[in-house]
Simulated scan of single mutants.
Amino acid sequence: MQHILLLVGQLNYTWTNTESLLIYLIAGLAGVDKETAIVIFLTLNTTRARLDLVERLAKLAKTKPACRKDVLDVTANLSRQQKLRNKYNHCVYSFDETGKLSHTQLMRIVDTTRDVRYGKVEAVDDSEMARIRASIGEIAETNRAIWEIVRRYGFPH
């Protein structure tokens, strides 16, 4: 249990640190100062809303094509990694009879035209732990890529 909690904590720290860098992308793409970008960032209360804003700003005609591509690449990476982060932030951890963590149960409803499903169960095994570690590495790479965009395009920081 300790190991998974440490990994999830590291995943969350890496994610939060990287998500906060969207402030600089907002500042540069919207042509505002950092303080204004912080207010915009904090006003949008979900990651999805923040990513949507950055993507929409990048798609404006005034954004240079190379910058647009770079920004959309990092937002796509974040969107992909967000799924795993959300999984571990919105699940119940289940244990076997010995008290060892055995699986997660996602606390989300899937409402289709014919039925309602909830609580997708997934094992927490070595491959899943490796997947979390890989995600942490990819988010860290995205962090570095955002800093490179900020420098390359002279965004406020």
Rank of each mutant, 00 (worst) to 15 (best):
A61I: 03
M107D: 10
S102V: 07
D126W: 00
R68M: 12
F95V: 14
F155Y: 08
L29T: 09
T113W: 02
T14I: 12
V71Q: 06
K62H: 06
A49I: 05
L78T: 02
T63N: 06
I132F: 03
L84H: 08
K100F: 10
T98K: 08
G119D: 05
V92E: 13
L22V: 00
T36L: 08
V39K: 15
Q82H: 13
V121Y: 07
S102R: 08
K120R: 11
F41C: 00
I136S: 02
I4D: 05
E128D: 12
V116Q: 06
R50A: 00
R152K: 15
F95T: 14
G9A: 07
E128W: 02
Y153I: 07
D111A: 11
T43H: 15
Y13I: 15
A61V: 06
E122S: 11
R85W: 09
S79D: 04
K59F: 03
V54R: 07
L11F: 07
K83N: 08
F41Q: 00
L72C: 10
L44E: 01
A134C: 07
R56G: 14
E138N: 14
L29C: 04
T142D: 06
L106C: 07
A76E: 06
F155R: 03
R114M: 10
T104R: 04
K34F: 08
S102Q: 11
L72H: 08
Y153L: 09
L44P: 00
S127F: 06
K87H: 14
L6D: 10
Y88C: 14
T113K: 09
G28C: 05
G137W: 07
K64L: 07
I4G: 01
R56Q: 14
H157V: 03
Q81W: 06
G28Y: 04
Y93A: 13
R48T: 10
L51Q: 01
N12M: 14
K59L: 12
S94L: 15
I4V: 12
S94Y: 10
Q82R: 12
Q10S: 15
N77R: 10
H157A: 07
H90F: 06
N89F: 12
M107Y: 05
A37G: 03
V71L: 09
Q2P: 02
G137T: 07
N45S: 07
R114K: 11
Y24F: 12
E19H: 05
L44S: 00
R117S: 09
